[in-house]
Amino acid sequence: MAIEQPIVKLLNIRKDFGEKEVLRKIDLQIHQGDFIAIVGKSGCGKSTLLRILAGLEAPTSGRLLVNGEEWRGRNRLAKIMFQDGRLLPWKNVYDNVAIGLKEESQKQQIEQILQQVGLGDRLHSWPSELSGGQKQRVALARALIHEPKLLLLDEPLGALDALTRIEMHELIEKLWKEKQLTAILVTHDVEEAVALANRVVIIEEGRIALEVPVRLPYPRHRDHPLFMKLVNQILNKILGNKRMTVESNSNLPAVESQ
């Protein structure tokens, strides 16, 4: 994999909003088949980084290379699932997922993917009739059905309960493997990051503070000793050393609170 050229490369990316420095220096290489999880505190610039990767936001300085070439404007390899879902209120669940689908063969999969996210019986509901978690799953289905080369997920499961979350993890993992996608997942949930990603990237003060490779085999079991060790290691990094005393205690809550 290392010999292959990365499909997307960020070089020395910096992003300011007015006076505010959000990203200072981000270098990241994304290879075909990668599953990268981005974690960090709220407001540290995770969504901004994803938007830069999708080509929705131009970096203040630095370079974005797609397949080795400098890129401006929308990144055509990428489909992003927005943090706030962004369903069209005037389209039912089915039609929301159908947005922008051009091929008949893809349209035939709409029902199937909605079943997979557990909404097979809600095809004709309006978004305003759905719960927050259901809306998120529609948005997730909409991003997944395009089978993009680069799948960008911005906290796709934030509003879900622990159980549905694990189901969605299985679904994402399955599709990622089957369709050989490259995925980047922003999450607040460190366990989620370790469960899915082959690399966890921690952002702190506008920089990548740590990149942790996760070499556990899929599907990953949370009771694996290495799993909890990695989760703790990452949490400690994010929280500074405040949690040192908890490190030995592996009875962490199943879902990391925000």
Partner: peptide
Amino acid sequence: PSLIEMAYVYELKGFSLFWHVIFPAAL
């Protein structure tokens, strides 16, 4: 504007952008 941006990502342009997003939003 966030819906327009979403439509942009999902490659709606020209008339289909108008018909699926702008017009229903303004209706």
